[in-house]
Design a protein around this nucleic acid. Structure first.
Lengths: 163, 163
DNA sequence: ATCCCTGCAAAGGGTTTGCAGACGC
DNA sequence: GCGTCTGCAAACCCTTTGCAGGGAT
């Protein structure tokens, strides 16, 4: 049922191709390189990280192209976008990954994931009630990490203080 | 149990005073004017709207002071901040208002509110599970409004088309 | 050959910052 | 009077845009 990482990279390439053809858009190497970079790394990223990563791999793309391609990937559902409260948008892979939501650490900004199927119930119930066809949801929990006896954060192992 | 609008405006003033004194911050007329403006209007607003509103009332404050004061109000819990996905942060009153979440219209950007107590359950359960003391949450549902037989949006009554 | 896409750099827009003068304490 | 807050404008940062050259079709 669930594909391995390499299969996923092939699958998303196929989906992207289909999408580009349907929309009459060009299949440029830059676009595929960006898609592949996204799906070869860990789940979350921001535009600049992606841009720098590709530059470090000696694959030169402009920021404009990164933004342009991300728009396409958002539109065909291969990537989702989040605004966790900072200025910078965060993105993540959307294919081959189960539905989940996010817990954001108030101290270090780290993002953890969790699942709760009840969110789906709320989502569909409220859509019905308010006359919307819900296309996306985002539940973000913000919190202070609990510390162990030594004042170390149980999640990031950093020394944190709450003055 | 629930206070009327005028009582609320007095209550928040008291809370703000207490907070400013505890933090050793000055009680400037600008700060109180901003707080009062926020609690005299409808629930949601953004920085620029607030700034313009005050200017129109001939109460001149600088944007810098608005931002500064909003930080204080966020810190003492009288205001909450949202990022609904646009560039602009949205704020809302946090005192005297029941816990709720938001449905954002993909077409017109309008924001509706709803309540579902199950979110609290998810929030506290996930805090426990992930070792966080959850201080805030935001659940945003994004959706396409359902249309009536004439293609009118059931929520905003505007003619909308989904090309 | 067409004309969309890329890369570059400049513009945009919300937010933050630096500094001088004002004023709460 | 001291030290912080305000107002103004410039700086900042992420994102978008305009334009000329290049590559997909």
């Amino acid at each position: 049922m669930s594909e391995n990482p390499q299969d996923i990279r092939e699958s998303v390439k196929g989906i992207f191709t289909e999408y580009l053809e349907k929309k009459g858009q060009r299949k440029t190497p830059e676009r595929y390189a960006i898609l592949d970079e996204i799906y070869s790394k860990k789940h979350h990223f921001d535009v600049d990280t992606l841009y720098i990563q590709m530059k470090n791999r000696n694959y030169q793309v402009s920021r404009a192209t990164v933004y342009n391609t991300l728009d396409l990937l958002l539109e065909c559902g291969l990537v989702v976008k989040h605004q966790f409260g900072q200025n910078m948008a965060q993105f993540e892979q959307a294919y081959g990954y189960r539905q989940h939501d996010h817990m954001i650490c108030n101290v270090c900004g780290k993002v953890l994931e969790f699942c709760d199927p009840r969110i789906q119930l709320t989502s569909s119930m409220m859509g019905e009630l308010l006359n919307f066809e819900v296309t996306q949801h985002s539940l973000n929990l913000f919190g202070k990490p609990k510390l162990d006896a030594n004042g170390l954060c149980l999640n990031c192992d950093n020394q944190v203080s709450f003055e």
